[in-house]
Write a protein that binds this DNA or RNA. Structure first.
Ligand SMILES: NC(=O)c1ccc[n+]([C@@H]2O[C@H](COP(=O)([O-])OP(=O)(O)OC[C@H]3O[C@@H](n4cnc5c(N)ncnc54)[C@H](O)[C@@H]3O)[C@@H](O)[C@H]2O)c1
Ligand SMILES: NC(=O)c1ccc[n+]([C@@H]2O[C@H](COP(=O)([O-])OP(=O)(O)OC[C@H]3O[C@@H](n4cnc5c(N)ncnc54)[C@H](O)[C@@H]3O)[C@@H](O)[C@H]2O)c1
Lengths: 206, 206
DNA sequence: GTGAGATTGTGAAAATAATCACAAGGGGAA
DNA sequence: TTCCCCTTGTGATTATTTTCACAATCTCAC
């Protein structure tokens, strides 16, 4: 129903709308948002048109209403709970990232095979042995598994997550995962962004 | 010359080719790579066709040669040095990420305004006061500035980076930056990935 | 050297995404 | 109410990306 490219822009819209909301601005035009976001206003209108007709001609969009709609389509209307598997450098950084909560995403627990990491010494969040993944999933109601383990561990960990009942995996390891087709995997490859920069530098300067 | 979408897949190709190389496999077919990567072989052939004709019909692609070509186009033939600005949770995770070096990217130093972070107590890398950005850029030969500062600091920090002569910024703060048009900004919005998952979960389950 | 089998390279077609351009409303002043 | 101004919503157009399909041509076994 919503194009992928449109879904990918909604988080950005969510953030500027939240800002307008805090400033008690009730109406905002596509042109105003476009300026702030560095994209075209027709892009915004086209994206929002997939909701049906929710703007007010001559005036703009109702900030609070649009915000509610975007939250709904992104599944932010109820808070979703995450399990972070791999309490290493990246896993702990994500666990302490306030941006997640601001988008309705709550890290409920971390998991690791290293017993030195177990317990609550790493901050407010508990680190459990990986063997407890399935039981804690039920207890804490977690829906999304975040994979921040070394590449070599990613596939076995994914298998465990699938067996534990996770239907959505957010994978930071640079590895393609094989999973049943009712399980969705979102790959996060940070190297792409910086190598794109490197590519442009190489073209321009050498 | 190379489509954006193609450039975005090169890092992935680079990794499987490196793997084949370590296994002393000299030739690889597009179908073999495709299987491993979960994409179509025609996608791979089309991507590689922008180099001109470098495969061997009936046999496949020369792993070492293809690797060299991809390195070249991604600017990995010489090692590029990075400055990480913001020695917080994410900045330190990136500083300790071995994947960067494996792709020819070397973190040379971190910068922070917080004097408690200055020095070399955070590991092998020095953390400098932000005021030294320009001078250290020259001394260490850094080309890319990585912004891992709070959203509110991102624009002022970007201004400093531009003034220091950086022509490429890798920005993790959820903020659009205004920069001169000879400066490239690559935005990294981690929330997009996980909200895409959340969206799918909401469609499927509610 | 020849033929069978494999794999590339690439035009053409299809799918997806972005931009354009303007008719259709809605707001608000007088 | 009427008229003017503003902004949406969207069909049409253009751009980009992916997929298809197969001729071209290379390898290798014999
Ligand atoms: N550090 C970064 O900034 C960064 C950036 C992008 C991608 N990544 C990727 O994220 C992953 C983690 O990177 P990192 O830098 O945090 O590494 P890390 O070594 O700091 O952390 C990995 C953690 O996973 C744990 N672990 C190992 N095997 C496990 C298993 N089978 N089950 C559960 N836990 C296990 C380890 O004990 C460790 O705590 C890697 O795949 C890396 O490529 C990291
Ligand atoms: N933590 C994550 O996993 C994560 C994920 C995605 C995006 N981000 C984004 O990355 C940025 C940093 O996040 P974090 O979690 O590392 O925060 P953090 O608070 O741990 O680190 C921020 C660091 O920036 C420093 N700083 C503040 N103002 C500065 C300035 N003007 N110049 C230089 N340094 C300055 C602080 O002293 C601190 O060390 C934020 O914009 C956040 O939205 C973080």
């Amino acid at each position: 129903m919503f194009p992928k490219a449109t879904i990918a822009r909604f988080p950005m819209y969510f953030r500027v709308l939240t800002e307008y909301n805090h400033q008690n601005i009730a109406l905002v035009s596509s042109e105003e948002m476009a300026q702030k976001l560095g994209i075209t206003s027709s892009q915004i209108r086209k994206d929002l048109s997939y909701f049906g007709s929710l703007g007010i001609r001559g005036a703009g969009y109702d900030v609070a209403y649009l915000l509610a709609k975007i939250k709904e389509v992104l599944g932010m209307d109820k808070s979703r709970r995450l399990a972070i598997i791999g309490a290493g450098k990246l896993g702990l950084a994500l666990a302490g990232y306030s941006g997640l909560k601001q988008h309705g995403l709550e890290v409920a627990a971390l998991f690791d095979t290293d017993d030195a990491k177990w317990g609550t010494n790493n901050g407010p969040l508990p680190v459990f042995p990986l063997t407890e993944l399935a039981s804690q999933k039920e207890k804490l109601g977690m829906e999304i598994a975040v994979l921040t383990v070394p590449a070599s561990a990613a596939q076995p960990v994914a298998n465990l997550a699938v067996k534990a009942g996770f239907k959505a995996l957010w994978n930071f390891a640079p590895v393609r995962l094989v999973v049943p087709k009712d399980v969705i995997v979102q790959y996060e490859d940070l190297v792409v962004g910086i190598l794109t920069l490197s590519h442009h530098l190489a073209r321009k300067f050498g």
